[in-house]
């Protein structure tokens, strides 16, 4: 897994590549917690390079969503691969996350 973060002016962009599974989800969790520390109001999560996720990863997505909602912030996911979107659909996650086709759409949404 590879995680990069950058400031977009109106929030933070997180790019995650590779797999989020039971063996490495804590790396993703730490990176995200680092971003959340700074009272961020908008997180853009680029899922383009994410090619595998298990329930260990899904629980972090949900945790971040809950935290952002609690502070009136927004978590926006974009560029999700179809196989990952399918897992979000199965889990009922597609209706509780804002998922956009690309960064531009996420910015406007």
């Amino acid at each position: 897994m590879n995680i990069t973060t950058q400031n977009t002016g109106d929030g933070i962009l997180i790019q995650v590549e590779g797999r989020i599974d039971t063996t490495n989800y804590n790396e993703f969790e730490s990176a995200v917690n680092e971003v959340l520390k700074d009272d961020v109001k908008q997180i853009y999560l680029d899922c383009n390079g994410l090619n595998y996720i298990s329930s260990s990863g899904l629980r972090i997505f949900l945790t971040v969503q809950k935290k952002m909602m609690a502070v009136g912030g927004k978590l926006k996911l974009f560029a999700m691969q179809p196989a990952i979107k399918e897992i979000f659909d199965i889990s009922g996650f597609s209706s509780i996350f804002s998922i956009y086709p690309d960064m531009d759409a996420a910015k406007q949404g």
Binding site: S55, K66, G92
Partner: peptide
């Protein structure tokens, strides 16, 4: 799990076996 709950009410976890069955 009840997958129709809004984010606030969704428990963290409990999806593993459900994913297997799906």
């Amino acid at each position: 799990p009840n997958i129709n709950l809004p984010a606030e009410d969704r428990p963290i976890g409990g999806l593993g076996v459900f994913l297997i069955k799906k």
